[in-house]
Design a protein around this nucleic acid. Structure first.
Length: 489
RNA sequence: GGGGUUGUAGGGUAGCUUGGACUAUCCUUCGGCGUUCGGGACGCCGAGACCUGAGUUCAAAUCUCAGCAACCCCA
């Protein structure tokens, strides 16, 4: 039996082309909107997006409250935090007119929401009893990107920035929140089966206005890393700028200590890119809009409403009742055409029912991830589907992790630049580096990489690599920490 | 930031060098009818396009300029 697609593109050789083609063919995103850097979600892509966000929401809702702040930010507020605005100034879209009337105060389309939210924090927070305050919102943000834009990855309109903002009585509590946020994001990406490294971004590359930034990066098939989440300890800087104070137990007024963290639709890009293959999408069952597709094998002698269709419908109903996202494809196409279509859309499990199966009171399962085929008694369908979806989820995650960690290269500290260069071209290299920007820049230039930052939570077991966390800086030989470098999106 | 390439039906393309017979090619897609159906079916009938604007010209898909959009390379 031939399961080789006639046309589909090689993912490894030409990731860019593969990516664009998949977005189109799997109906994730329509890129034909005539404005640079903004795109249209197809219903199928939108469903996928929402399923992914449902996971994040359920994690967030445990300790955060969802809110919604306005898109428009008055110029004065946006400009208040000097360092912060320095980082965004060139990327802000401005609304300067109402009809033909020039606005007195220009309004910015939020590039991120700190300056929209924190003036309100100022009036919301009065007492230590109001703390900690933890909110989040899922909104669109706008950035005037000048580099080449890319669907889901570099956008002028981020359609769904999932940003959280917290305020705390003291720094210790804020730092505790950073750890919680890291743990929360880990769970999130684990459920998406997207592997990652966690680093503390170098001083020169942190979020403007933050004390420090922690980031999650995954590895794309072309060997470049992509930042998929960031977590920032803001400390008191924004509190001082926006005058966010609370009255402590002893009656004194104190500034709050803040954090913020966010994830964009790059998490969708990661799911697509990490798992997909030359047949198309391969969605983890947890986020697949359709988890099971039922394909009837019908003959004209039997026709519509025949035995095959009845059995398919019965199976479909049982799966639905069990809470499984199933779809019965009784369109006119021939079975082969259906197989290709649903493989392209990443449906994790296909059930085939034909006359041969019905004679034996069974159906056939075909897995999207490895195309293995098994025969299942009709009576056991629901439990077998559940079990198989679980296995697929685990196997997809396992495969992704293996690929990921096979592309992280550990160095012992005595390698020459020349040896590292080809490795850095298609993976992540872990080296030792001191904290100076000069050494960082030197390594970036020599290897053509970005310094992602100091490896965190690298206790070895979970990141699958282990090794020392400290060593001599590759450039200046002073004391250095383990950092990851890679070509980055 | 700098450089390059490109824009023709829903998608992919031929035609452009040398302007005219282009009523615009082929594949796919879409609609109708029939035969089919265990890995992309076939027959017949039908539908659908020269990015936008200005210019050159008797004549523009084709040449020039601008805009918009896309892709690639370098920093």
């Amino acid at each position: 039996m031939n399961v080789q697609p006639k046309t589909l593109l090689q993912k490894e050789n030409n990731f860019s082309e593969w990516y664009n083609e998949i977005l189109k063919r799997a109906e994730i995103l329509d890129v034909r909107y005539p404005v640079k850097g903004v795109y249209v979600w197809y219903p199928y892509g939108y469903k996928l997006r929402n399923l992914i966000y449902t996971i994040l929401r359920s994690l967030m809702d445990k300790e955060h409250k969802e809110t919604l702040f306005p898109l428009l930010i008055p110029k004065e507020e946006l400009m208040k935090e000097r360092e912060h605005i320095k980082g965004f100034e060139e990327e802000v879209f401005w609304v300067t007119k109402g009809g033909s009337t020039e606005l007195d105060i220009p309004l910015a389309l939020r590039p991120t929401s700190e300056t929209a939210i924190y003036p309100v924090f100022r009036v919301w927070i009065r007492s230590h009893r109001d703390l900690p305050l933890r909110i989040y919102q899922i909104v669109n943000t706008f950035r005037y990107e000048t580099k080449h834009t890319r669907p889901l990855i570099r956008l002028r309109e981020i359609t769904s920035f999932k940003e959280a903002h917290t305020a705390h009585a003291d720094r210790a509590d804020a730092e505790e929140q950073v750890k919680k946020a890291v743990a929360l994001y880990r769970k999130f990406f684990d459920e998406l089966a997207v592997p990652y490294v966690i680093t503390r971004r170098p001083e020169w590359d942190k979020f403007p206005g933050a004390e420090y930034s922690i980031a999650f990066d995954t590895l794309m098939p072309d060997g470049k890393t992509m930042q998929i989440a960031t977590i920032h300890l803001l400390g008191e800087s924004f509190a001082r700028t926006f005058d966010i104070k609370y009255e402590d137990k002893d009656g004194s007024l104190r500034y709050v200590n803040q954090t913020c963290y966010g994830i964009s639709e790059r998490c969708v890009a990661a799911v697509i890119s990490v798992h997909g293959d030359e047949h198309g999408l391969m969605l983890p069952p947890g986020v697949a809009p359709i988890q099971v597709v039922i394909v009837p094998i019908v003959y004209s002698s039997e026709g519509k409403n025949g035995e095959v269709e009845k059995v398919c419908l019965a199976v479909y109903e049982k799966l639905k009742e069990a809470g499984i996202r199933a779809f019965f494809d009784n369109s006119e196409d021939r079975p082969g055409a259906k197989y290709y279509r649903w493989e392209m859309k990443g449906v994790p499990l296909r059930i085939e029912v034909g006359p041969r199966d019905i004679r034996n009171n069974r159906c056939e399962f075909v897995r999207r991830d490895n195309f293995s085929r098994m025969q299942v008694p009709l009576g056991d369908v629901v439990s077998e589907v559940k079990g198989t979806l679980n296995k697929i989820q685990n196997d997809i995650a396992k495969r992704a992790r293996e690929t990921f960690f096979a592309n992280i290269y550990k160095t012992e500290g005595d390698e020459e630049m020349e040896e590292l260069s080809p490795k850095a071209a298609h993976g992540i290299v872990s080296i030792f580096l001191c904290e100076s920007e000069r050494c960082g820049q030197e390594i970036e230039e020599h290897l053509g990489v970005n310094v992602l930052g100091e490896a965190l939570y690298g206790d070895g077991t979970e990141n699958g690599e282990g090794g020392k966390s400290e060593g001599k800086c590759m450039i200046c030989s002073k004391k250095g920490k383990k950092v990851y470098v890679a070509r980055a999106y």
